[in-house]
């Protein structure tokens, strides 16, 4: 490069310098933008921590919401979130993995599979509040299921279904065709190949997608508001595990509920500043959950890539 520049005339040398400067400037701009993005994320985290960290205490986690800000807590919210997530995971993961597996391994290229493909991609872009309207009109009223944990879990599982489907497809697509051929080669039927060979190999990728999906579901507010979940819940759903036989009970599925983001929204929209502190504290907890889940997913993917490379 420099060799050419020396031999070339002044004009060319200047041109080369201009080009180098352009590249340098753009590189700096790129890093600057990254810093802006990072800075915003950090400001957000810092703002929440400053506002809310002091409010987090054992009492905050074990108290019900209250009209007095200082006495209020998120007990019903985090219990609700946990139970709703159980339902969401139990529905979204099998359905999403099943659909992903079908689209990637079974579906032949035809009009039907094309329709399903366009459809899944569109579902991924349907606003979450529309899912809320679906749940309100279909589950709550048409099926008369009420505003229960089951409905909350159902709507969130529909919402994250495309995420699980896409993750499954990518994980399955990444499996070398040699594994597939040799599994069929020993005479396994299609389901045996899926169950014993494809799914175990795709598991880390599927898990990553499922975690990312669930972390999105944890933070979702709009569809839960739309189904009309109460924001003031001062009781817990019946315990899933009981001390008397049959030890497991599913009544909690039909219980009204609230979740963390609803609680936070509720407190944020109050005019009093004391409630904003509660909101910030809830936000800190919520952020911890989603960032930890995503961090775990990123770590899983990183480890997966390394094992694939070696």
């Amino acid at each position: 490069m420099s060799d050419i520049a020396i031999r070339a005339g002044d004009d060319t040398r200047r041109l080369v310098q201009v080009k180098r400067r352009q590249d340098l400037i753009f590189g700096v701009v790129g890093i600057l933008v990254l810093f802006v993005v990072m800075g915003l994320l950090m400001t957000l985290v810092a703002d929440l921590l400053i506002d809310g960290l002091g409010r987090i205490s054992p009492e905050f986690l074990t108290s019900f919401p209250s009209r007095r800000a200082a006495a209020a807590g998120v007990l019903s919210a985090w219990v609700g979130t946990t139970l709703v997530m159980l339902v969401t995971a139990a529905i979204a993961i099998p359905l999403g993995v099943g659909a992903g597996l079908y689209l990637e391994e079974y579906a032949s290229k035809n009009l039907l599979s094309d329709i399903i493909e366009v459809n899944v991609s569109n579902l991924a872009g349907v606003p979450s509040i529309i899912y809320g309207l679906l749940a309100l009109g279909f589950f709550v009223y048409a099926l008369d299921m009420g505003q229960t944990i089951l409905v909350g879990g159902l709507v969130l599982s529909l919402l994250i279904l495309p995420i699980v489907i896409v993750a499954t497809r990518e994980a399955v697509r990444a499996i070398p065709s040699g594994l597939r051929e040799s599994a069929y080669g020993i005479g396994a039927n299609r389901w045996q190949v899926m169950w014993s060979y494809i799914l175990p190999s795709a598991r880390p990728g599927i898990l990553t997608g499922a975690i990312v999906g669930l972390s999105r579901a944890i933070g979702e507010t709009a569809p839960i508001i739309t189904i009309g979940a109460l924001t003031y819940i001062a009781f817990l759903p019946p315990a899933p595990v009981t001390s008397t036989p049959p030890w497991i009970n599913f009544e909690w599925l039909n219980s009204p509920f609230t979740v963390m983001p609803i609680q936070m929204f509720n407190w944020t929209s109050r005019p009093q500043a004391e409630f904003h502190v509660n909101a910030a504290a809830t936000g800190v907890l919520l952020l911890c959950m989603t960032l930890m889940m995503n961090g775990f997913a990123i770590y899983l993917r990183y480890r997966l890539r390394r094992t694939v490379r070696t």
Binding site: P176, G178, L179, E181, S182, A183, Y184, G185, I186, G187, A188, N189, Q192, S196, Y197, P200, S201
Partner: peptide, 30 residues
């Protein structure tokens, strides 16, 4: 059923991500 009667070995060694024993036994299990 054809594949149950005709065994095949491919270009690239492609053992299943299982133990040595399970690999050989896999054709028996199916």
């Amino acid at each position: 059923l054809v594949r149950l009667m005709v065994g095949m070995v491919f270009q690239k060694p492609n053992p299943f991500p299982k133990s040595i024993f399970e690999n050989v036994a896999s054709g028996l299990y199916v």
